[in-house]
């Protein structure tokens, strides 16, 4: 479930007709300061129309208006709140506080409090094998109506834990804020594929041969899939694998600490397995 819906104010740095352009240096300073606080900023000049269409969020138009007086503006559709302010004589800090003041108490996501950390699937590589779904204990993955793997609950993902990227046999799982490739989205080399395959040997402890069988839709596979492994053994294997990844420094220790109780782990693992099996048509 996506819970954060506070959209930033859209600030328009207006340099079109009726306004004087800022110096390139001040423009860059003001834009950087606003962006670093989480605002979205449009630079509007008389050249071309580079601006994107607008949605329903509030618009704040800033400019060096020729008579130092911001025009009174109103959205012709009546849906969007527009305010304009003249910024003649104001420095970057003053402009940012003017924007903050205009936003008032309206909530907004802001950098520094939370890190956008979640997996992104490269569908050009993904074979829909569902290993990630079976692996993740935090319900980050789900299946779309048409049976495709999806990142559905990205807010559940544990910050700085890229463990599922190691499970993916196709190196299709990326974490944009990760430091190194190919997990950060860098091109996948042959060496990465080899390395990831070896990693899967380790992580296959998690689900053992269930994963292989999930990929095999033959009848024989179906009957083997339905055979239960010992729950104690499966739990032991999962713990061993996670501990190994933590030891390697690949997943933060806090994630291990945040793991649900053994019973809950088993329940979730069974649930995920069933969802993966259902999506792949294995009964």
């Amino acid at each position: 479930m996506i819970t954060h819906i506070h959209r930033p104010l859209r600030v328009v740095l207006y340099e079109g007709k009726g306004a004087i352009a800022l110096s390139a240096e001040s423009r860059a300073q003001v834009m950087a300061a606003l962006l670093d606080k989480g605002y979205a900023v449009t630079r509007a000049t008389a050249n071309d129309s580079g601006a994107m269409p607008h949605d329903d969020r509030s618009l704040l138009v800033l400019g060096l208006f020729t008579d130092q007086k911001a025009p009174a503006l109103e959205d012709s559709s009546g849906k969007v709140n527009i305010e304009a302010r003249d910024i003649t004589g104001l420095g970057t800090v003053d402009i940012v506080s003017l924007v903050d003041k205009t936003r008032g108490t309206t909530l907004m996501n802001e950098p520094g409090v939370w890190k956008p950390w979640f997996p992104v699937i490269d569908y050009s590589r993904c074979t829909n094998c569902m290993q990630c779904l079976s692996f993740c204990l935090f319900d980050v993955y789900g299946v779309s109506g048409d049976g495709k793997i999806q990142v559905q609950n990205n807010d559940n993902c544990k910050t700085n834990c890229p463990a599922c990227s190691r499970v993916c046999p196709e190196v299709a799982i990326m974490f944009p804020k990760y430091s190194a490739g190919p997990i950060n989205g860098d091109v996948v080399s042959e060496a990465d594929l080899g390395r990831e395959k070896m990693k899967v040997d380790i992580t296959s402890l998690l689900g053992g041969d269930i994963y292989a069988r999930l990929r095999d839709r033959s009848l024989a596979a179906k009957s083997r899939f339905s055979k239960e492994r010992s729950p104690d053994k499966a739990l032991e294997e999962r713990k061993k694998c996670l501990a190994k990844l933590a030891q390697d420094g690949f997943i933060p220790a806090e994630v291990l600490e945040a793991l649900p109780s053994p019973d809950e782990v088993m329940r979730k693992a069974e649930q995920a397995k069933a969802r993966a099996a259902a999506a792949l048509g294995v009964h």
Partner: peptide
């Protein structure tokens, strides 16, 4: 700085990842 030195209109966002997350 280069975008700002040009005469082009453009859009800028704080973080595409944050936008995608939400």
């Amino acid at each position: 700085a280069k975008l700002c030195e040009s005469g082009a209109s453009f859009e800028s966002v704080a973080d595409l990842c944050e936008m995608a997350a939400h």
